[in-house]
Design a protein around this nucleic acid. Structure first.
Length: 940
RNA sequence: GGGCCUGUAGCUCAGUUUCGGUUAGAGCGCACGCCUGAUAAGCGUGAGGUCGAUGGUUCAACUCCAUCCAGGCCCA
């Protein structure tokens, strides 16, 4: 007789091989056809909301691994909150304006651009953004990210553009928006402002000059040694043409300065460390240091400008270095970033007597009309003439050039728009609000606090085409800003209907109400600003354009989640716009993740050749593996990815998948509605399994709540391998396969397996949505089983399953099991046994152990999968067995020892357990008594 | 150069509420073995770490302090 046919072996069509790359797209299609997202949304109606507000990725290029990480994390959160009983809708967004798109469109156009209007260019930019939104949308959907993909928010939507303009107007109304000069990169040839990204650095030759400035203020009180002397501050610069714009000399507050008597009747002030070199350059050999000077003692003292009848103020700044020059830095706030910033602190003007062709204006007097680079020589000559030039050399250094025409660029102050950090207390209020927000990890608070505390006013204007204009007017006569509610509302309505292009198309008179006059000077002539807004302003008002305006969202959001670079970016700009115009932060919590790095922790870059693209991972392993990768790591730090890591994860995936498959196979004849066994009728090991499961649920739910997904991954993986595969399910095999199919003990095991599977599948659904659904479809119907796992809830622990006393007992039994498997392994090594069922084990215990274990002899046998366990009350160690066929082990647990012996009797052909009863029956001579009983039951 | 952060076995993570205590754990991978009734599966055993480095505080440091090294993000 073929007894195998009398067994209940696992049966399932659930495929062992996942074939994710192929099956995932099919699943996505199915979900779409079934309208799953709508169903999920409907099912959540009326529940408490949980809103994760999406930070918009830039609509340019394909997504990279970091974008994938970000979106998967968001998806895990949204799905888990949804399954935790919230109404968690996800509205994805895109950042559409800005330089990179404009730049790429420029590149594509090449020469053609010259004949095109700004409106035409803007149209192309819009089309460009649309193209990449479609591409990225498909990529995000492929990752399994669920959301309102058909109704995302785009910063270039008309309504969004209108909101951007309105929020900007509100800053004007509220008094924070102001116009002021600031130096920016300027190409004199293209006559355009350039962004940092449009600058290329090449080596270039520059003149390098040392110039002395006469100190006008008397310092003899502080430095008696200098009384009556002619004192000069000595500066060094490689841009002589900025000397006409000099308004200051900067010293480092911490450097040591000295007064040097040149031996020629003059005293020079410079940094001590640079004296030797400088004097050599100037050709003075007979010099002497006559005083030590602290920078602070010279602060705000005044010098005479060497060319004009003007003063130059001594200021202190940390940007001063000792790498070259004199330690006294020529400061022209209109022509340098740092000069501007230090000048700002001392109230110096961003003076820049240079026009948009790079020629001096009449303010520069002698040099009027001269192109700045050509004027260098004349300026040097003039300095020489005035006796201010100490030395002149030529040097080669890295100098910024225009990306387009490759000519050197200059820094030039032009009027820009700013949002003040302090006029209306924006800084103070923002700092206060930072402390209301929950920053995860907590150090995010320090990071953004430091940035807000120290940042300069926000320069929001850009001299660009692709963006939303700063929709304000200023007086043609006195330059005062014109803005009121009526104007603002009108602009909002116009843009909402026509988009931002309308601002550029229409004349001032069509945009302004009739009879508008300047409050300050009464003029009725106004200029329409055509600069556009910084794109950080665009995305920074998403809370106003999206959270506030969509019915299904709320303000503030529960959570913002981005990479930790966004403390300077989106978190920052969102905070400022929200605090500035609404008085509080637009988020209650901010979660950050690190950056994706390679296997050795280095950043990914094309030049290093260590880039891993999400598409490649998906094609090779599937999106689920990428998602598992996201869940497995502690994303609060940087996250490594490598072939090895992905391989490890797909191994882990297979383990989880196979564990599910095994359970499915053993549930093929199980109907939970009819066959479920109540807890009280279950054997202890089943109760113990449910106890363990209940602990997993608790851990998992808590981890979702605190966004610690790696805890879920590790717990679940450990659970599948250690608790299930290596223990519970392995032990269960005998019961499942050999018992009468409908017996209570088999049904009990199935009840538990069904519960376990139902639980872990729902627990893992936010992380592995594809696989969870695949398993879900294979699971038998139960009461209230939803059509999709994604319509179900996270598992809830059952208090009745909790059984700490039982768990303590079984943990101890597991220790003994561990000891037994060591013993079995030794026996195996000696070729005494092969399969563990070939063995019997004699456990010797002292009185206490014997008492404690005697109720569990059969449990110990079953859980160790041996043919027999006999418990004896004696010490076995040293009791060398008979015939070399016994394997004593050393005492591992105090009071316990054991002996592995070949199992007595013959192997039952049906259940493979060795038992003396095998061979006793005439009907079934190769089968044990137990199986004979089962066979009789089956036959009847 | 500055701000914030990270550095525990080959890999991914634990290491017991901010504030030190004895032989630093898990899973994977690897090696070896078993099984062939989860089978392109399953089980077992084993070998892997001077806790980035150095110095200090302490009876005692992966844990506290300092410096350094390596790496990341953001500034300059």
């Amino acid at each position: 007789m073929d007894y195998k046919k009398t067994l209940s072996l696992p049966r399932t069509k659930f495929p062992m091989k996942a074939n994710l790359a192929k099956r995932e797209p099919e699943q996505l299609k199915k979900w779409e056809e079934d309208g799953l997202h709508d169903k999920v949304r409907k099912s959540a109606k009326g529940r408490e909301q949980f809103i994760l507000h999406d930070g918009p990725p830039y609509a340019n290029g394909n997504i990279h691994i970091g974008t994938a990480l970000n979106k998967i994390l968001k998806d895990i959160i949204v799905r888990s909150r949804q399954m935790a009983g919230f109404d968690a809708v996800y509205v994805p967004g895109w950042d559409c304006h800005g330089l990179p798109i404009e730049h790429n469109v420029d590149k594509e156009l090449g020469e053609k651009k010259k004949g095109m209007s700004q409106a035409d260019v803007r149209k192309l930019c819009r089309a460009y953004a649309e193209k990449y939104i479609d591409i990225q949308r498909d990529e995000f959907k492929r990752l399994g990210v669920m959301g309102e993909w058909e109704n995302p928010y785009l910063t270039m939507n008309y309504a969004y553009e209108a909101t951007i303009a309105r929020e900007c107007c509100k800053f004007a109304l509220e008094g924070s928006l102001f116009r002021s000069k600031k130096p920016i990169y300027w190409c004199c040839d293209c006559k355009t402002a350039l962004a940092e990204a449009e600058i290329e650095y090449y080596d270039a030759a520059s003149p390098s000059i040392f110039v002395k400035f006469l100190l006008k203020d008397d310092v003899s009180n502080d430095f008696p040694a200098l009384a009556g002397k002619k004192i000069f501050m000595v500066i060094w610069t490689t841009t002589p043409w900025t000397i006409p714009a000099n308004l200051g000399i900067a010293l480092h507050p911490d450097f040591e300065y000295v007064a040097v008597d040149t031996g020629k009747g003059e005293v020079f002030v410079l940094a001590r460390e640079l004296v030797e070199n400088c004097m050599k350059t100037f050709g003075f050999s007979d010099f002497s240091i006559i005083a030590d000077i602290k920078a602070a003692d010279l602060e705000r003292k005044r010098c005479a400008h060497p060319l004009y009848d003007r003063e130059s103020l001594i200021v202190l700044g940390n940007h001063v270095t000792l790498e070259a020059g004199t330690g006294c830095v020529h400061t022209a706030p209109g022509h340098g970033r740092e000069d501007y910033e230090v000048g700002f602190e001392y109230g110096l003007d961003a003076y820049s007597p240079v026009d948009d062709r790079g020629c001096f204006t009449d303010e520069a007097d002698f040099f009027e009309g001269k192109f700045v680079f050509k004027a260098n020589k004349e300026i040097n000559a003039k300095l020489q003439e005035n006796g201010a030039l100490l030395a002149e050399e030529n040097i080669t250094h890295q100098y910024p050039h225009c990306w387009r025409c490759k000519r050197p660029v200059i820094f030039r102050a032009t009027p820009q728009w700013f949002i003040s950090m302090d006029k209306t207390g924006l800084r103070r209020r923002s700092l206060k609000e930072i402390d209301r927000v929950n920053w995860i990890p907590h150090w995010g608070r320090e990071r953004i606090y430091g940035m807000i505390e120290n940042r300069p006013d926000w320069c929001v204007s850009r001299q660009r085409a692709w963006g939303v204009p700063i929709t304000v007017f200023y007086c043609d006569k006195c330059e005062s800003l014109l803005m009121n509610r009526e104007i603002m509302d009108n602009i909002f309505d116009l843009l909402k209907e026509h988009g931002a292009d309308i601002w550029l198309e229409k004349d001032v008179k069509d945009l302004l109400p009739n009879g508008a006059t300047c409050e300050k000077c009464g003029s009725s002539s106004f200029i329409k600003e055509t600069d556009i807004l910084d794109v950080w302003f665009d995305s920074g008002v998403s809370h106003a354009a999206v959270l506030e305006q969509r019915q299904n969202l709320k303000w503030p959001a529960d959570l913002y989640l981005e990479g930790n670079d966004q403390h300077r970016g989106w978190f920052h700009s969102s905070l400022l716009t929200a605090v500035g115009l609404r008085g509080s932060a637009p988020y209650n919590a901010v979660l950050t993740h690190g950056f994706v790095v390679d296997k050795s922790g280095k950043k990914m870059s094309k030049s290093l050749g260590n880039v891993i693209a999400p598409g490649e991972v998906i094609d090779k392993y599937g999106a689920e593996i990428l998602r598992l990768w996201v869940s497995a790591t502690d994303y609060r730090d940087d996250i490594r990815i490598s072939e090895n890591i992905l391989k490890q994860l797909s191994d882990a995936y297979r383990r989880i998948r196979n564990t599910c498959r095994f359970m499915l196979g053993n549930l093929s004849d199980f109907d939970p509605l009819k066959h479920a066994v109540p807890l009280e009728s279950m054997p202890d090991i089943d109760k113990f399994a449910l106890h363990t499961l209940q602990e997993l649920i608790g851990k998992g739910r808590k981890a979702y709540e605190t966004y610690e997904f790696h805890v879920i991954y590790h717990s679940l993986h450990n659970y599948c391998t250690v608790d299930l595969s290596a223990f519970y399910l392995d032990v269960l095999k005998d019961r499942l396969y050999t018992s009468p199919p409908k017996s209570v003990k088999r049904r009990s095991a199935q009840t538990v397996m069904h519960t376990i599977l139902d639980t872990i599948i729902r627990l893992v659904a936010p992380i592995l949505p594809f696989t969870a659904e695949e398993v879900w479809k294979f699971m038998p119907a139960r009461e209230g089983k939803e059509e999709s796992v994604h319509l179900s809830d996270l598992p809830v622990g059952n208090a009745a399953w909790k059984n700490p006393e039982l768990a303590e007992k079984w943990d101890f039994l597991l220790e003994i099991r561990k000891m037994m498997s060591k013993g079995l392994e030794e026996a195996r090594a000696k070729k005494l046994i092969g399969h563990s069922l070939d063995a019997g084990v004699i456990i010797g215990g002292n009185e206490e152990m014997y008492e404690r274990l005697s109720p569990y002899q059969e449990d110990l046998r079953a859980m160790s999968i041996v043919s027999k366990v006999s418990l004896v009350e004696e010490e076995i160690i040293g009791n060398e067995g008979t015939n070399g066929k016994e394997m004593p082990t050393t005492e591992v647990i105090e009071g316990l020892s054991l002996l592995v012996v070949p199992a007595a009797g013959n192997k039952c052909e049906r259940c493979w357990i060795c038992d003396p009863s095998v061979g006793k029956s005439s009907k079934h001579p190769t089968v044990c008594t137990r199986c004979q009983g089962v066979l009789a039951e089956i036959e009847s």
